[in-house]
């Protein structure tokens, strides 16, 4: 029996720092995400999880540190280039294109991986028609993958909450990401919806996607993630497999406080 090679790192964040005025939202945060794993990022409210997420995806410029993604430095402060580089994200407070159909939302996601321009569109060139048909097919496949193909023609805002979450994931997948970053996907979901979401994320991993998961629902994170990093006051206080993180005294302290005799 041969030893399995260690999975390659897909993303390496080195010494990330971010300030808002006098507040140090992130200090010296380093973490490594390997290909094919579900990597959890947890922490109490205000710990800097979403800030880290926004820095990673280019929404906020970072003040310190660097990110190596798939072997190359990640561009700074340009979310569209981060998406083109292969990191797709969803938002904590769902941000769909509300007045476009579910299918159109996913088709927008295909934008970065398609290329026909104005001339092609106006002249309806053969290349344009073929690309358009391929985008449409791809969108329908992805809607079926996340399980909402029956709602393809409905406006995004008329979908149920759980379906909107799924649509956002489908739209993110349409950008053909190497890393899928989900910002609190289970927020506001009931137990049934969370269970279905859990199955979907597990399936994403089985299909070879790498997932970065920010989540408040500890049960979901512990059950799903291969490794977990814990942030507290902008610092990383733990980074390990779920069982170790649960035993880590710093983590217990951050979540429950210290016992004073």
């Amino acid at each position: 029996m041969t030893a399995l090679p260690l999975p390659l790192p897909l993303l390496e964040a080195r010494n990330i720092g971010k300030r808002f005025g006098g507040v140090r939202a992130l200090q010296d945060v380093s973490l490594t995400i390997r290909r094919g794993e579900i990597y959890g990022l947890i922490g109490p409210n205000g710990a800097g999880k979403t800030t880290f997420f926004n820095v990673l995806t280019g929404l906020y410029p970072r003040d310190e540190g660097e990110v190596i993604f798939a072997g190359a430095p990640l561009p700074l402060g340009e979310p569209y280039r981060v998406a083109q580089a292969g990191i797709a994200r969803t938002f904590q407070n769902i941000r769909l294109f509300a007045n476009m159909s579910a299918r159109e939302n996913v088709m927008v996601g295909c934008h970065a991986r398609s290329k026909v321009g104005v001339a092609g569109a106006v002249l309806r060139s053969r290349a344009q028609r073929e690309e358009e048909a391929a985008i449409r097919r791809r969108a329908d496949e992805l809607l079926a993958y996340v399980g909402i193909n029956a709602r393809a023609g409905d406006l995004a805002k008329n979908l149920s909450y759980g379906d909107q979450r799924r649509l956002e994931i489908a739209r993110a997948l349409a950008t053909e990401p190497q890393l899928l970053a989900l910002d609190e996907p289970a927020a506001g979901m009931n137990a049934t919806e969370t269970g279905a979401l859990r199955a979907l994320i597990a399936r994403l991993r089985d299909d070879g996607f790498t997932v970065l998961l920010i989540e408040h629902d500890i049960k979901l994170v512990m059950g799903l993630c291969d490794r977990i990093a814990v942030l507290d006051y902008g610092r990383k206080i733990a980074d390990d497999v779920p069982a170790e993180v649960q035993r880590n005294p710093h983590v217990i302290e951050a979540y429950l406080g210290v016992v004073h005799e």
């Binding site: 995806t57 929404l59 979310p79 569209y80 998406a83 083109q84 797709a88 994200r89 938002f91 941000r95 769909l96 294109f97 509300a98 007045n99 476009m100 159109e104 088709m107 927008v108 996601g109 934008h111 970065a112 991986r113 739209r171 993110a172 349409a174 950008t175």
Partner: peptide, 18 residues
Amino acid sequence: RAWAAIREDEMAAKACGI
């Protein structure tokens, strides 16, 4: 579609690689 996406939510449009 890219125009419509910007009209609907510019930040989400950027996150889609536009």
